[in-house]
Nucleic acid binder design. Sequence first.
DNA 1: TATATTATTTTTGTATACAGAATGCCCGCA
DNA 2: TGCGGGCATTCTGTATACAAAAATAATATA
Lengths: 244, 244
Amino acid sequence: MSSAWQEEVAAAARAGNRISDRFIVDQVRRAVLMQRLPPGTRLPEVTLGEVFGVSRSVVRKALTRLASEHVVDQRPNQVARVRAPSIEETRETFAARRLVEGEVAALLAGGLDTVTAARLEREIEREIEAHERGDEPARIEHSLAIHHLLADQSPNRVLGTMLTDLILRTSIVIALYKRPNLGTCYLKGDHPSLLAALRQGKDDAEGAREAIVAHLASLEALLDLGLREEETDLHSIFAGVATS
Amino acid sequence: MSSAWQEEVAAAARAGNRISDRFIVDQVRRAVLMQRLPPGTRLPEVTLGEVFGVSRSVVRKALTRLASEHVVDQRPNQVARVRAPSIEETRETFAARRLVEGEVAALLAGGLDTVTAARLEREIEREIEAHERGDEPARIEHSLAIHHLLADQSPNRVLGTMLTDLILRTSIVIALYKRPNLGTCYLKGDHPSLLAALRQGKDDAEGAREAIVAHLASLEALLDLGLREEETDLHSIFAGVATS
DNA sequence: TATATTATTTTTGTATACAGAATGCCCGCA
DNA sequence: TGCGGGCATTCTGTATACAAAAATAATATA
């Protein structure tokens, strides 16, 4: 577990940044996102504390915050584990994100300030470049930046925060359920046409919403969401069998 | 602060329930909801610990969880305080809730099982009774139960959890911004007609959505959301005045 | 009197110690 | 070989101690 973190911790220490719970939250979140911490990974408090050079108190706080972000599973008297959302939850998360991000896009349509539009355009270009040179991590980074920009620019801050959370959760399940043979989840042309829809006049808010909804639906369709054995509900299968 | 809690703590101890962070979270949340803890109230860790008979460790965990529920404001090196959402955030919270609860209602339309429908009906009746005998706390309790039932029954659990959170947040701001002269926020007939819409066939999902949206809009309209002096942004007022 | 500065008190941040729960291992037994 | 009970280990839950930061009170000074 201490693999790539040692350097980051050392770097942060060098920079004079005091290691606090927020730092740990960021690092763990990123590691989960980048699949360096696969779902189910045990995260004992002492071990994490050793890695980051802090005591259990700090780790504890970080873990409860990660749990409230749905990144980690924290149950009483058990070690925290990296969460592995079920296929059903994955579908529900995508549905929720379509609803929320669709609304944010509708609110934003026609009202983008020039600097934001420019930043969006730049990220979209860079995503294309990264994809063309086969740099998948960079592509993901830019793709995420695009959507986070929408969340940050949401006029409704409550919805914006909710969207940030949903982007994180969908990213996790994308990494989890991506078809192995599929190299990338890049959808050519989706982001450019999304930006075009956002630039339309305010009277076409529904166009922006539909662009987002369609984009997210295509993304979900790229995943392998067939039922697995882990999904089978033992309770329903053996209902009435046990003599209690 | 120790006013009404002493009894509750004693009762819980008598019942053999070990006081844990969840208990504290519930109690504080309820106290905020019932306006026994007005916004801005300081919540020092030791004091809370004394009230509930636990050490700071437990209180600390409770406070971070309350912060992630947006009930409490927790900033570094400062005492936690009961959050006082701004008027703008109030509007945004209502908008978010309309979006989410509307979708949940649409998903639920025509698919209510009989026991849930019966429970809804019962709560609606009891709300009417409580209102007629002027028992406002009981009325609020039943009104909340109605909406929490919708959240619990949401087929999409992600949206259901989000709705639970939004119901809490709107309840807090309703208590905060209710017009003082207004005795109650009861909207006669809204809940019955909502149930009627939910009972309609599945082809009328939009009817259920509209019923919820209209209901929540009327609720928001009952609040006093005129700009207050605390809302004035000094930065924008004095922009360019200071010679920096 | 008003203001700046220092001292005191509160309150949080972090580390650590010990008790209790959960897990896993090992050995005995059929 | 397969299985079950008891023991050891690991890990979390909670309380507590000390340091650092913030808030408050007090004091000196112009």
